[in-house]
């Protein structure tokens, strides 16, 4: 049975599992690096991208801790259904991204005020980044559920690199690609709706795949 309360509890469990890995020194160092690069490049989007993409690295930690301590077996003994584990892990990943989005906004806003004539443009940029990170996570999570942390850790960065490569190609060759003009002509609201639909459909497919993979695994 789908129980939002159980899923929320699992999100808390994941948070507690990851907590020993979140050291203040590492977090401060990462924050300083993100801010430093943002200030040096004078580009708020870069300052915002750093925490969001850093969050994708933390996504692997529940799988890492789980593998080290056989926590998937613990979930069974604690009567946590596999479906709750999968949905809870997606919930945890979404929560992680929300926190990262908040940090990204805090980092990028002063740089945007400083550098951009129209700082309001930061919001769509942040939401686009947020959507991209969710898509990356939706590609990564089924791989973790299928293979476990050790076997998946190399593979999960492939989607991240692929998305970065696509961005570079699209930005670099935008004037030579016919469809980019057609996409631009759709207008921001149509683009936003298409983006949300793509992200939601991708997330639903990803959850179903993860459930199937997790059900097939033994611990």
């Amino acid at each position: 049975m789908f129980s939002p309360r159980q899923i929320w509890r699992f999100v808390r469990l994941d948070g507690r599992t990851v907590r020993p890995y979140l050291q203040t020194r590492t977090l401060l160092l990462s924050a300083a690096m993100a801010l430093g690069i943002g200030v040096a490049t004078r580009e708020p989007v870069i300052a915002a991208a750093m925490p969001l993409f850093m969050a994708t690295t933390y996504l692997g930690y529940p799988f890492l801790a789980g593998e080290r301590s056989d926590m998937d077996a613990l979930y069974v003994t604690w009567s946590i259904p596999g479906r709750t584990v999968v949905l809870g892990r997606y919930g945890f990943s979404f929560g992680l991204n929300l926190v990262a989005l908040l940090v990204a906004a805090v980092f990028a806003t002063p740089i945007a005020w400083w550098q951009w004539a129209v700082p309001a443009e930061l919001a769509p940029a942040l939401l686009t980044l947020f959507g991209m990170v969710i898509v990356v996570n939706c590609l990564q999570l089924p791989v973790y559920f299928k293979l476990g942390y050790t076997k998946a850790k190399g593979l999960v960065y492939v989607p991240l690199l692929a998305i970065m490569a696509i961005i570079v190609l699209v930005v670099g060759f935008a004037d030579r690609l016919r469809w980019t003009a057609a996409v631009a002509a759709l207008g921001p609201w149509s683009l936003a709706i298409i983006g949300v639909v793509v992200v939601l459909a991708g997330a639903a497919g990803s959850v179903m795949l993860s459930m199937r993979f997790y059900r097939a695994r033994e611990f």
């Binding site: 507690r16 907590r19 080290r68 056989d70 926590m71």
Partner: peptide, 28 residues
């Protein structure tokens, strides 16, 4: 209804005994 005592517990090494209690309490 089943209590489990394994050769090596399935708890993360970084957890405290209090963490174990708080988390177990969410599901039992």
């Amino acid at each position: 209804r089943v209590g489990v005592v394994m050769d090596n517990p399935y708890y993360p090494e970084g957890w405290t005994a209090r963490d174990v209690g708080e988390m177990a309490g969410l599901f039992y």
